[in-house]
């Protein structure tokens, strides 16, 4: 490769810098606003660094509504969903990649069409269904799909990964008398740890950040998730932006922490979905 001239490099850094500013500034502004005093909120022009760091905003914001409860609800829903997805998607992916049953690939082809079905198309009948079972306003409608295959997309991803594991390993285990349950649990799943982590992370994001699901299925405040708590907060504190941003910051932190820990997995995972898709 030819050496790039410094002008080229400067241009690249300039453009990346502008892009980074665009990506980061809203997050900075959220944190900044969460720490300022009400008096400073409406100051024109606004200062970039708070004159006084008002940590009290967080307490005021979190005391306004039972955020501890909302947090717990979100944690329960998200953990149950991750557990369900990891278990059921890997079982199904195993079936579609390691067991040679008649009609397998045709069935998989049909299942794949589920990828293209928007939630909005099935939302109303699902609501009617859960309502008939008296399970609306519980976590069941939000968690159940995870235990029933955990999303076609995740099965698809895991199946691709399983297909890359050498078949000789299964054959060797079979010779030793292992059945499918043991091959699945002792060979395939441990070898697919990487893919399982990616799917766990994507499931975390999808459920933790989910706004529509709870809005459709959860009605009473004690069952609200964090996202619903945030909109509840918006309803009554819409002018107190410092408190609003304090609540928002608290809600963003778990996602942010997980991203910082597992950044590499996220980016590899998304890239994987694109190539294989």
């Amino acid at each position: 490769m030819k050496q790039q001239s410094w002008i080229n490099k400067a241009m690249i850094y300039l453009l990346l810098g502008i892009g980074s500013l665009f990506c980061l500034f809203p997050i900075f502004w959220m944190v900044r606003t969460s720490l300022i005093d009400m008096g400073e909120l409406y100051q024109i022009p606004p200062g970039f660094i708070p004159k006084v760091f008002k940590w009290d905003n967080f307490r005021t914001a979190l005391d306004a509504y039972p955020f501890g409860r909302f947090f717990l609800n979100s944690v329960i829903i998200t953990s149950l969903a991750i557990l369900g997805v990891l278990l059921s998607a890997s079982l199904c992916a195993y079936s579609f990649s390691r067991i040679d049953w008649k009609g397998r690939d045709q069935v998989f082809g049909v299942i794949l069409t589920g990828l293209m079905i928007p939630f909005f198309v099935v939302m109303i009948p699902q609501y009617v269904f859960w309502n008939a079972l008296h399970l609306t306003d519980t976590f069941v409608p939000l968690v159940a799909p995870a235990w029933f295959g955990g999303g076609v997309f995740n099965i698809f991803l895991l199946r691709q990964f399983f297909l890359g594991i050498p078949r000789e390993l299964d054959e060797a285990a079979k010779v030793d008398g292992a059945g499918h349950v043991r091959i699945y649990a002792v060979i395939i799943v441990p070898l697919a740890k990487q893919a399982m982590i990616v799917i766990g992370l994507l499931t975390f994001l999808a459920n933790w950040n989910d706004y529509l699901g709870p809005l459709a299925f959860i009605t009473s405040e004690k069952n609200y998730t964090l996202m619903q708590g945030l909109t509840l907060f918006q309803g009554s504190y819409s002018a107190q932006w410092n408190l609003m941003m304090a609540a928002t910051t608290v809600i963003v932190i778990p996602s942010l922490v997980i991203f910082l820990i597992a950044q590499r997995h996220f980016i590899e995972g998304i890239a994987m979905t694109g190539i294989k898709g």
């Binding site: 059921s88 998607a89 079982l91 199904c92 195993y94 079936s95 579609f96 067991i99 040679d100 049953w101 008649k102 397998r104 069935v107 049909v110 299942i111 589920g114 079905i117 198309v121 099935v122 109303i124 009948p125 699902q126 009617v128 269904f129 799909p145 235990w147 029933f148 295959g149 955990g150 076609v152 099965i155 059945g179 499918h180 699945y184």
Partner: peptide, 28 residues
Amino acid sequence: KELRYGLLFASPVLAGYLLFVLVPIAAS
């Protein structure tokens, strides 16, 4: 035997597809 195991392992998504995709679309 393979067919039995195959369907057993795939049963979550088979039931899920029916319950959360196929029937809801027809119902819609």
